[in-house]
Design a protein around this nucleic acid. Sequence first.
DNA 1: CAATGAACACTATGTTCATTC
DNA 2: GAATGAACATAGTGTTCATTG
Lengths: 128, 128
Amino acid sequence: MSEFKNRGFLLKQRAFLKLYIYKTIDKHKGYASQYLGDLRKEFKQYGYEPTHTETYKVLHELTRDGLVKRERQIKGEKGVDFQEIILYSLTDEGKKEYDLYKKQMKVELERCRGLLDKALEDHYGPVR
Amino acid sequence: MSEFKNRGFLLKQRAFLKLYIYKTIDKHKGYASQYLGDLRKEFKQYGYEPTHTETYKVLHELTRDGLVKRERQIKGEKGVDFQEIILYSLTDEGKKEYDLYKKQMKVELERCRGLLDKALEDHYGPVR
DNA sequence: CAATGAACACTATGTTCATTC
DNA sequence: GAATGAACATAGTGTTCATTG
């Protein structure tokens, strides 16, 4: 909620990413670096390339707030390639928060789209 | 152009404001505080309230780059209420730059709208 | 080397203070 | 008090460095 004091210009990247990460975790367990790769692929055509740091920040925030569980695991062919990863899944509270967050973000995303639509109309006219 | 290295997330407030200010100056002379008031009124329903500082920054930037002319003037009933204001108008180069900027911003605004539309669709489905 | 994480640095933007008539 | 402007402060985010198996 304090996150939505952001009654200013457009929404912050962090909030945008958080929504996607919530969704992904909710669908299936996964680890940070994987999420990042997927997001980058999805947004590539929009010229948007999120950084790894920003992804971790979201994940750490969710962890701190008790909204996700962390689970260590070894990835790779057994014995050969040790690579520890951390799998995320939503806690019960996390699921509830995701629901709420999603509702709030709908309003926020639409507000922002309104702002952009207004600008497009104001400067380039009604027909696009 | 360096302004559009901003191949990241959403566009910056400064660029957004600059486009509006260009447009307003182009239409009629005016002064900063007036622009600000008008913008605030227009965006109020979107929960966006630009600050005076941000407005001045745009204006100073345009001045520094030789894109607008400044003209001092006294406002108010003569003799009674002295209030110096600064009127802005586009220089010839400013007009050209405005054209160019407007073209670039169209692309940028549409890119951003695409990002928001994608998010709205990804999270809330095709029917809205 | 891939993944995680922290530290540090920078830029955009907002808040406060100063000045002038 | 309205308008302009500068100075200062903070937040958001990116870049770099560190660690681990």
